[in-house]
Simulated scan of single mutants.
Amino acid sequence: MNDISDTTIPTGIPAGDDPIGEDRSLLIVDDDGPFLRRLARAMETRGFVVEAAESVSEGIARAKNNPPRHAVVDLRLGDGSGLDVIEAIRARRDDTRIIMLTGYGNIATAVNAVKLGAIDYLAKPADADDVYNALLQRTGERPELPENPMSADRVRWEHIQRVYEMCDRNVSETARRLNMHRRTLQRILAKRAPK
């Protein structure tokens, strides 16, 4: 499901041409163990020095002990939100290049992640090349626009997620505002975003 390619960058790059820079530290926080290990290996082959965490608490602890220059953080983790990890990183270091990575992509959380300091937002499945390119994207570069517009189901999903975020992730209040049964809303929130 999550395809992580192991393409490597060329070795022997002159110091001035190294796209990663001197500080090669990368923190990856994701509760999907196999995906985390594959992504960590793939990023190590590309020249990063990787620390991995499988929970919000572990991610925050690693960010406090050794604030990374680069970070890839999953939005939904078993013990909370990856947004808390972003805040912890930003409290210690303001130059970290952070990518929010999630299988539950929506506009509201993308905007929130960017406000907290993420530089990009990638939906799973993302491969290592996507993550690498996003981490090293230069300021001012624009990503390619998608060829296909969002489907009607996706637009509905985005609206529900936006209201959910506006209600501080309170399911009951979101259901009330959307004039929707709470259980129906919970089922929608538990599913992945439609294409």
Rank of each mutant, 00 (worst) to 15 (best):
P125S: 09
G140T: 10
R97D: 01
L27W: 01
T11I: 06
G78D: 09
G80H: 03
A113W: 01
L135P: 02
D130I: 05
R46E: 07
A71P: 07
T174W: 05
M180H: 04
L189E: 06
P149L: 13
P10R: 10
I89S: 02
P146I: 04
N179K: 10
A118S: 14
R176K: 12
M43Y: 03
P14K: 12
G16N: 10
L101G: 04
G16P: 00
L189W: 10
Q186M: 14
V50G: 04
T8L: 03
T45F: 06
P19L: 15
T45G: 10
C167H: 00
I119C: 12
E87F: 02
W157C: 08
W157Q: 13
R38G: 15
L39N: 04
T174R: 00
N112P: 01
E173T: 07
R142I: 11
T174K: 06
K195W: 00
V131T: 06
E158S: 08
P149E: 14
R138S: 13
H70A: 15
A126K: 00
P194Q: 12
D130G: 15
T8R: 10
Q186R: 13
P194R: 07
G47C: 09
A175L: 13
A71F: 03
I98S: 02
G12K: 11
S25Y: 02
G80T: 11
